[in-house]
Computed example of a mutant assay.
Amino acid sequence: MTTLSGELNAVGVLRGGARTATERAVESALDAVAQWAGRAIRYQPVHGGLQNENWRLDVEGEQSPYFLKIPGAGSEAFIDRDNAHHAAAQASALGISPKIAHFDSSTGIEIIEFLEDYRACTNGDMKRPEIAGEIIRLYRAFHGIDSLPCTKTIFDMIAEHHDQAVELGIRLPRFWPQLELEYRTARDALLAGGIDLVPCHNDPMPGNFLIAEGKPMRLIDFEFSSNNERAYELAVMTTEFFYDDVRTAECVEEFYGTYTPELFARVQVCGFLADVKWGLWAIVYAQLNDGWDYDYHKYGVWKLRRALSRTSDQRWGSWIGSI
């Protein structure tokens, strides 16, 4: 951390001392920040990101550290960086996201303030009702910003990932034809009922929510943000963290300000769509980037299988019929 005298503690790598390709990439990113030219900067990795390389920066003359994000290989196939920056800037203006110090539209490299007292949520945190309530508070605030440059509904996302899988020659699971039939039924029902389009964050990974004792939660990472169906925002959270019907119903009431069976059904159907989307995303990403120590293909197939299992619920037909 930078001291009051402007000297740096000997933590991390001092700019100019890069020894690996990854460290050289960090220094190249720092060289593009004109206001920091000639300043001593130390950098150290921040672990936990799935797609990107993340770093903490301690900059000479600055009282607080910064957070550097370098996009991972292959992520450009999914992400509109200018749209993500636009969303982050609006969220920052609302006070629900860190301040932005630097953004390079040509590379997607972003530097934001490092919230020293905060930590990223964990899977365990997401089971706590008060955490879910804070997330819903952030979502409701974000839904009120101006429309984003990118309108990409859940249907657009699924179609995009499916086309990517076909182009890459990826063999989809043998149950895909049955799942695709159910998907088309759900899509047609939602489109017939009308889409409730609002700016959505679309990515409830625990690490995207920062918490600190006695301070409001902060929302980060707007790479998947777009104008999308409002119910999907809640559905992808309740689905990702295995909320049961009671907890999901409570979230529906908090999210919408009321509970109705129709709203509950809409969230359940969008939860199905969330698993289809992220299942396809994962198997495509596994093909585009083999540098991660994680079996994205296996994860994707599991997501698709879980989506299909939801259609076995005896209420599935009534959910489709009521949206």
Results as ranks from 00 to 15, higher is better:
residue 14 L to V: 03
residue 56 R to L: 08
residue 152 K to S: 13
residue 62 E to K: 12
residue 240 E to A: 14
residue 18 A to T: 04
residue 90 Q to M: 12
residue 181 L to Y: 15
residue 41 I to M: 08
residue 9 N to K: 14
residue 288 L to V: 03
residue 147 S to V: 05
residue 135 I to W: 14
residue 78 F to C: 00
residue 33 V to A: 09
residue 255 F to C: 11
residue 203 D to S: 12
residue 250 E to L: 02
residue 11 V to P: 11
residue 289 N to H: 14
residue 236 V to P: 00
residue 237 M to S: 05
residue 243 Y to F: 00
residue 262 E to T: 02
residue 319 W to A: 01
residue 287 Q to I: 13
residue 213 E to Q: 11
residue 116 E to V: 08
residue 11 V to D: 13
residue 126 M to I: 01
residue 63 Q to V: 01
residue 94 L to K: 15
residue 130 E to S: 10
residue 118 Y to N: 10
residue 211 I to V: 09
residue 246 V to A: 12
residue 149 P to K: 02
residue 220 I to S: 06
residue 38 G to D: 07
residue 43 Y to T: 04
residue 303 K to P: 07
residue 206 P to F: 04
residue 154 I to Q: 03
residue 20 T to M: 06
residue 169 G to D: 06
residue 209 F to Y: 13
residue 6 G to K: 11
residue 232 Y to G: 14
residue 49 G to E: 15
residue 276 V to A: 07
residue 304 L to D: 06
residue 53 E to F: 13
residue 131 I to Q: 02
residue 183 Y to C: 11
residue 163 D to W: 06
residue 110 E to R: 10
residue 41 I to S: 02
residue 323 I to H: 00
residue 124 G to V: 05
residue 51 Q to F: 09
residue 276 V to H: 06
residue 182 E to F: 09
residue 234 L to R: 01
residue 7 E to L: 08
residue 238 T to Q: 06
residue 102 H to K: 05
residue 50 L to E: 05
residue 206 P to V: 03
residue 4 L to D: 06
residue 296 Y to H: 14
residue 197 L to T: 12
residue 150 C to I: 12
residue 15 R to A: 01
residue 228 N to S: 04
residue 276 V to G: 01
residue 158 I to K: 12
